[in-house]
């Protein structure tokens, strides 16, 4: 278990991956707490987020100790948190973007 993720603030319910990680356990550091571990339910890339707790639909996703969005569906610990299950409280378009590339799906090219 060499891959780590980092929890920035004790109040956070997500942590950020410090390297690409496959399904399985990764170390959780930071948050001013002792090192724990979380089991990823899907591969997650460097810089992306993993849920550390159950987050109910409609509940705030917390990173840096502040709400960075709202869960658009229930999220379980170990799940990848991104466009498919977390929406912005400002930017309505973000929910329609391609999950992997972030490209828009509502712009016509032809």
């Amino acid at each position: 278990m060499t891959v780590r993720c980092f929890k920035i603030n004790p109040a956070d319910n997500v942590a950020t991956l410090l390297a690409d990680a496959d399904i399985g356990p990764v170390e959780v550091r930071g948050g001013g707490e002792r090192t724990t571990s979380i089991t990823l339910s899907s591969p997650i890339e460097l810089g992306h987020k993993v849920a550390l707790t159950n987050i109910a639909g409609g509940e705030a996703v917390i990173k840096f100790g502040v709400p960075i969005g709202t869960a658009s569906q229930p999220i379980s610990p170990g799940q990848w948190v991104h466009l498919h299950n977390c929406r912005s409280n400002f930017d309505a378009r973000s929910g329609s973007l391609d999950l992997h590339t972030g490209a828009t799906t509502d712009t016509k090219y032809d």
Partner: peptide, 11 residues
């Protein structure tokens, strides 16, 4: 930004 792991403008 999204592809790099940022999910929302707030983040």
């Amino acid at each position: 930004n999204f592809a790099g792991g940022l999910t929302t403008i707030e983040e």
